[in-house]
Design a protein around this nucleic acid. Structure first.
Lengths: 122, 122
DNA sequence: CGGTATCCAGGAAGATACTG
DNA sequence: CAGTATCTTCCTGGATACCG
C-alpha cells in the first residue's frame, strides 16, 4: 500500500479506489441489473448467474455503504427487500457504458494480441 | 438489455474483462506513467511507490500480452529495456481520464456516504 | 425470503535470494 | 539492470448450515 505522506490523494489513487469498488467480480453485473429498476434480493441472485448468496450480500453491502445503492425493507411476511440505484449509482452507469464501448471496440485487437503473444511463447 | 444469451459474451462480461485487466492493484499506475513516454524497468519500479519487482514484472507482462504495452530490449551492457504504450494502450488513457473525472467529482459524496453508513452501524 | 456464521481451498501478492 | 525462482502469508470467494 502506498498512500505515502502526501495529504492529497493523486488522481491515480482515486482511480484505483474507483476500480477497487467497481472492479471486483460481481459489482458490474449487479449495477447493470439495477439500472433497469429496483430488484429484490433473490431476483438479483437468480439473474446474476453463478453468484453465491454470500457474495451477493457482500456486493450489495459495499454498494450501499458507498451510497450507490439503497436498501429498502418492507416489513411484510415473508419479508421483502428491494435494492435500487441512487442518483450517484446512476452516474456510474454512464461510466460503465464508456468501459463497455471501449471493450467492444478493442476486444478483437486484444484477443489477437493475446493469441500472438501466447503463440510466440508456446 | 438482454442478459440471457450465454453463447456470446454480454456487454457485462466484456466490461468485466476490461476491469479484470485494468482493475488490479498496479496497472493504472504503470499505464499512467507510460502515458508520458517510454520508461525503463527500474525507472518504473522507483516511480510506482511500493511495488515489488515481481509485481511490476507480472503487470508489464500482462499489459504486453494484451497488446497495450511494448517491450524493447537494447542489447547493451548493462542491459536496457524500455516499456511504452502501444496505440491501443493510448486509447486506455482516455478511459482512465473518464474514471478519474468521475472519481474526483463524486469522491466527497462517497466518503460522506461511507462515514454515514459506518456511523449508523458503529 | 433474506440474510449470518463458519470453514476451507486456491490464488494473489510480499519478501528474499539468485542469475544472465 | 532486469529479471526469475521460491517460499509464505493474506485475502477472496465458494460451500454449507443455520436464524428471524
Amino acid at each position: 500500500m502506498n498512500l505515502g505522506n502526501k495529504h492529497e490523494p493523486t488522481t491515480c489513487q482515486l482511480i484505483g479506489d474507483v476500480l477497487a469498488r467497481v472492479g471486483d467480480k460481481w459489482t458490474v453485473f449487479v449495477v447493470r441489473l439495477l439500472a433497469d429498476g429496483p430488484m429484490r434480493f433473490n431476483a438479483l441472485k437468480r439473474a446474476v448467474d453463478g453468484i453465491s448468496q454470500r457474495m451477493l450480500t457482500l456486493t450489495l453491502r459495499g454498494l450501499e455503504r458507498d451510497g450507490l445503492v439503497t436498501r429498502t425493507v418492507f416489513p411484510t411476511v415473508p419479508p421483502r427487500v428491494d435494492y435500487a440505484l441512487t442518483d450517484l449509482g446512476q452516474t456510474l452507469i454512464t461510466m460503465l457504458q464508456g468501459l463497455g464501448a471501449w471493450a467492444i471496440e478493442h476486444r478483437p485487437t486484444i484477443v489477437a494480441a493475446r493469441d500472438a503473444y501466447d503463440a510466440r511463447r508456446e
